[in-house]
Write a protein that binds this DNA or RNA. Structure first.
Lengths: 343, 343
DNA sequence: CCAATTAATTTACGCGCGTTAATTTTTATT
DNA sequence: AATAAAAATTAACGCGCGTAAATTAATTGG
């Protein structure tokens, strides 16, 4: 932190006693210069605190150090949480993450990708809406930039996908619920905004078949991202009507379950796995708040860290390889059963 | 969306039949050119879809169209929600919001501000940690860029502050609680990470004095951002010990209240304002999930939209004025009492 | 219709750095 | 110590646009 303000790389190079092209090389990749010169530069860096002009830097570089991160909705704590880990992993690796939320709107997802184009990102990590996404826009983006999908898969798009194995995780939950009480019905949204929902329904059907149980699916009306609201209103209606035909409800995700718990409380239905309870409710995702619902929610924990780290490391592998992966990689992490009190 | 890819503004200017400097002027501010030429440019724009190189643009421009938004923790739905509205308001105004979360770390808040420096933002909206923030860093930033604080105030820093009037809001809640049952004690963290907590404690004390009631404050150990956890553990301990000396607890914020509700449920304490209830719990903030707690949480709603819009419009006023405001403006929105079932 | 004003054009430079090619210096190898 | 290989230096160009000054064209208003 010296006094004389350094205006550009020219001046800084002069001060550090290294030529400008070498300094430029250093900033591009510190390991690409001899350790003795690296030391010189870093000494000067400590004394004079200079950082290259981002805009001039990126103007001519083909690939910047920017990593785009696009999630459907940051107001959903699940995405906030996973985005946080992805972001930190990028910083860790010396990149500049640019976090964009699509605020629940597929159109804004497209806009976000277009905005990212202008920033010439080295790569992009995208949790897409799925069927609601602008598939062509994402495909086009995939052709132009290294793209890794996470959370929600889209067939053939992106060079890799990282997510949770819904078939394993749902099966795990169904197995547990069948062993410990009445077999579950399945509660979800009629028009889910996420492809995982479809996988989970399918997984539920298969798992119930395997257990020789008759599946029952209840689909709630309502669109958008107010899952708790929908879970509360529609789930509450079904509870009041005693429509489920079983005392065990497996919700497609925790947010629906949180809504249903709220409705059950309002109806004075005691939720839990004890003998005195009327109802068991289970969820999926281990939403950050699921530990604090009443009662605490039995659910499936997604491997946040695993997904985040794998997505980031996968992207970086292809960045280093400087070419598309020979084949699309799909990595599915297993869900863990989190037994709390609600089921 | 034409076929021949346009490489730069030169080519685009040629196609649109306007000189490059004028086109440049247009992109800087569409209203600065004659409407006839504006129309020509926009026609060409529709046909050929060109957008200027962001990096080249910002290299020489003093003020970019970037607006920095820095919040302490995006994983907290309160900040996610308010950041969302701020972001949308910026886009609405034709700026490029850059959303940065400090992930609960004041050091990262400093880093975020430093990163923003490199992007030459036109202005920055900051929800600071407060006392934990690197005050000097923020002051230095304030000197170099138009800065508006929101949510948490810091004396003399930023050209404006927008937040909630904690004295009004807490008084409103205390008033309600006193009228409708036993006067509340106050539950908070011993080392709150947010200056609003201190204001709220002060407000509680004053309000209780005004109602000629003896205040009682309970401070939970624990640091960090796991408010629910702390509310549950520490609040639960106090509940189990029957330490409060009143059946009414006013929590410093909703997240603590959510934790305490969870603990109360575990202790089989019926929470609510009915005759058959053991305990009343109230919060503050109208956290997005407070509608779905068991029972739904009585709380104070902050005016998310008001705060977001006011912060953004305040910043834009000073951007247009191109100079510091004559005096620092503080805008406090009133909280609204949200009567649900918990108190 | 002409002068006064306003806007667009032409010309030219510079921003700060990436990058390349030719050359020189340093390091590693035998 | 001689040679090969690796790294740094020098010199120079270009990226795409902002911006300024001088000039020309278009608009306004009386």
């Amino acid at each position: 932190m010296g006094q004389p303000k350094i205006r550009n790389m020219e001046e800084f190079a002069a001060i550090s006693g290294i030529s400008r092209p070498t300094v430029s090389k250093y900033f591009n990749d510190p390991d690409s210069v001899r350790s003795s010169t690296r030391k010189k530069i870093e000494t000067a860096l400590k004394k004079h605190d200079y950082q290259p002009n981002v805009f001039a830097m990126n103007q001519n570089r083909r690939k910047t150090k920017n990593i785009g991160i696009v999630v459907p909705n940051l107001a959903d704590p699940f995405f906030a949480e996973i985005a946080r880990r992805v972001e930190l992993a990028c910083i860790e690796a010396g990149y500049s993450p640019i976090l964009l939320s699509s605020h629940g709107s597929p159109a804004m997802e497209r806009d976000n990708l277009n905005s990212l184009r202008a920033l010439k990102p080295a790569g992009v990590l995208l949790a897409p809406f799925g069927r609601m996404s602008d598939t062509d826009a994402i495909k086009a983006f995939d052709a132009d930039f290294p793209l890794v999908l996470f959370d929600a898969n889209m067939a053939g798009i992106g060079q890799a996908f990282v997510g949770t194995n819904n078939f394993q995780s749902i099966d795990l939950m169904v197995e547990y619920l069948c062993r410990s009480g009445e077999p579950p019905c399945f509660f979800e949204m009629k028009f889910p905004s996420n492809p995982n929902a479809n996988k989970r329904r399918q997984a539920y059907l298969e798992s119930m078949a395997r257990h020789r149980q008759t599946p029952r699916i209840f689909q709630a009306d309502g669109e958008g991202w107010n899952f708790e609201e929908i879970g509360s209103t529609e789930g509450g209606r079904l509870l009041a009507e005693n429509a489920f035909g079983t005392n065990t409800v497996l919700c497609s995700n925790d947010r629906l379950a949180i809504g249903m718990l709220s409705a059950a409380y309002g109806l004075d239905l005691r939720v839990g796995h004890g003998a005195e309870c009327h109802l068991r409710i289970a969820g999926h995702d281990d939403h950050p708040f699921s530990r604090f619902t009443c009662p605490p929610l039995t659910t499936i924990a997604q491997d946040y860290d695993g997904i985040a780290n794998r997505a980031v490391s996968g992207l970086f592998r292809m960045l280093e390889a400087e070419e598309r992966l020979p084949s699309r990689e799909e990595t599915l992490f297993e869900g863990r059963l989190i037994m709390r009190d609600s089921a």
